[in-house]
Amino acid sequence: MDVNEKAWVRSERLDLIPVEVGHAEEMVEVLGDPALYTFIGGEPEDLAALRARYTRWAEGSPDPEVTWLNRVIRLRAQERLVGTVQATIGPGPVAEVAWVVGGAWQRRGIAKEAAIAWVAWLRAHGVEEIRANIHPDNLASAAVAKAAGLRPTAIRQDDEQRWSTTVPETPAT
């Protein structure tokens, strides 16, 4: 695997930029809607907590076999941050991914475009399997995962279903 922790990923409308502590001020507003946490749990963080999280992310994983890749999603036309994508890689060439787009920017295809670009970039850099854990009632996130090439599996983790890029095709009957 050859993942550059500082690489930008670009798509038609978006830049996926490595998270920096300085992004917290803009992202606290983007991530401030309690509705974003309906399926993933938790609640919005204040600025100090978000800065602390971004500081931990910038320091990287404490496990040498695991790489954390965290990106803010920048909508170039508006020159503003609108969400995040993440990947936890390892051990081995497996990544757990996640995405979130602020409520004000949802239903515009941003999460779909970001996830497609993110998964493609990860695969191009040697990640063999990409997984996402999605609450079964989160139909929007399931649609994003499907568009990015992930398919549902029979595996459940907590209240979520695992989606993966390596699900064997079901033979046609």
Rank of each mutant, 00 (worst) to 15 (best):
E45Q: 11
G60H: 06
W57T: 15
E43A: 15
R51L: 08
N70E: 15
G41N: 07
L50I: 04
A49W: 03
V30K: 06
L69Q: 12
L69P: 06
I40V: 11
G41Y: 01
I40R: 10
L36T: 01
A49Q: 12
A48H: 05
A58C: 10
F39S: 09
I40H: 07
V30Y: 11
E59D: 13
L47C: 04
V30A: 08
L47E: 10
T55W: 14
V66K: 02
P44Y: 07
D33S: 02
A48Y: 07
V30H: 02
V30I: 06
T55R: 14
L36Y: 03
P64C: 02
D63R: 01
A49F: 03
T55P: 12
A52M: 05
R56W: 05
A48F: 10
R51D: 13
E45A: 13
D33P: 00
L69I: 14
A52Y: 03
R51S: 09
N70L: 15
N70V: 12
E59M: 12
L31Y: 05
P64A: 11
E59Y: 12
W57Y: 06
L50Q: 01
E43L: 14
V30L: 06
D63I: 02
L47I: 06
T55G: 09
A49N: 12
G60S: 09
I40S: 03
Y37T: 05
T67E: 15
T67K: 15
A49V: 03
T38E: 10
L47H: 10
G60F: 08
L36F: 05
G60Q: 14
P44V: 06
A52R: 03
E43H: 15
I40Q: 12
G32H: 01
I40F: 02
R51F: 10
R51W: 11
G41Q: 00
R56A: 12
E59I: 13
L69T: 08
L36V: 03
G42L: 06
G42C: 10
V30R: 07
G32F: 00
L31Q: 01
L47D: 06
G60D: 14
P64L: 05
L69W: 06
T67Q: 14
